[in-house]
Each structure stands twice: as structure tokens, then as C-alpha cells.
Computed example of a mutant assay.
Amino acid sequence: MQLIQTVVVKQILTENSKQQLFDQYHARKQQLQKECDQLQFELKRLEKTKTFPPTTLKKHFEKEIQMRKEKIKLLEFQMEQLHILPLGSELKEKEVQALVEVKVGDRWKDDAATIVIKDGIIEDIR
């Protein structure tokens, strides 16, 4: 019988991976800032058309802008934490699904498998 098991993928922090993560966070932060600017522009444009009630329109756009600003704050926090982390730390990158073959008489392991990656290369499977 085959089962689907969740496997945790962890990344060992190196200079290279640290820089890549920082670049990803920075690019995402810039994208969110552009989205905020675009939403503010759209709000002003739609306010001039007067086809929507101004209070509803403003409330909706401000909610969207606020969501993006919260994501920006989270990214800034992650960037700070990344700066503090020492090289060699293991970061949980993601979870993937794997097929596992089980038979009668096999030992049951309740703990999730883990794959450890260093600079894009599998270092260890636990």
C-alpha cells in the first residue's frame, strides 16, 4: 500500500543562500510597494469618475493597501531576522508530499521525513 506523507524541506543557511533569500524578500517588498502606489493611483482615478460611492470606495482601497503594508512589515522583520541568523542555521523552506510504500510488518514511524538542502544540493535525508 502507498501512502502520501508530508516531507519537510529545510535549507542550511550559507552566504549564497542568505543573499538569495535577502534578494527575494527585497524584490517582494518592492513589488508590494508598487502595488500600494498603484492602488492609491486607482483610488484617485475612481474618485474623480464619481461612479462609486466615495466612502465605500475609499474603505475598500484602504483595506487592500493596509494588507499590503502589513506584508511589507512582515518582510522587513524577516529581513532583520535573516541578518541576525548565523551561517549553518537550518531554515524550514517548505513542505512537499511524497509517496511512501508500507507493508504488513513494517515499523511505523510517526515523525515526518526531512530533506536538508545546502546551496540547492541535497545534503541529508532524515
Rank of each mutant, 00 (worst) to 15 (best):
D23H: 08
I4C: 07
E80M: 15
T55I: 09
K18L: 06
T56K: 07
V8K: 03
L87A: 13
Q20M: 09
E80V: 15
T51A: 07
Q40G: 02
V8C: 02
L57S: 02
E42R: 06
Q31P: 00
V8T: 13
L46P: 00
K92E: 09
E62A: 03
Y25P: 01
K94T: 10
D124H: 14
L87G: 12
L46E: 06
D124A: 15
A27E: 10
R28P: 00
D119S: 06
Q66L: 09
A112S: 09
L91S: 08
H26K: 07
F77R: 15
E95C: 01
Q11F: 01
V8L: 08
L82E: 08
F61R: 00
E76I: 13
M79K: 15
F77S: 13
A113W: 00
L21M: 07
K69I: 05
E101R: 15
F22L: 07
T114L: 01
V104N: 13
K10E: 09
E47G: 03
F52M: 15
Q20N: 06
Q2G: 04
E42H: 05
I4N: 11
E90N: 10
E47C: 06
H83R: 15
K50I: 08
D119G: 10
Q78T: 12
K59Q: 09
L74T: 13
K103Y: 12
E42K: 09
G120T: 02
Q78M: 14
L3R: 11
D119H: 06
R68L: 07
I121Y: 00
D37C: 01
A27G: 06
K71N: 04
R107G: 02
A98N: 11
E64Q: 09
I4S: 13
V7H: 02
E95Y: 00
Q19R: 11
Q33I: 14
K71Q: 07
I65A: 01
L87T: 10
L13P: 11
E80G: 13
Q33D: 15
P86N: 11
R45Y: 02
T114H: 01
S17E: 08
R126D: 01
K69S: 00
E123L: 15
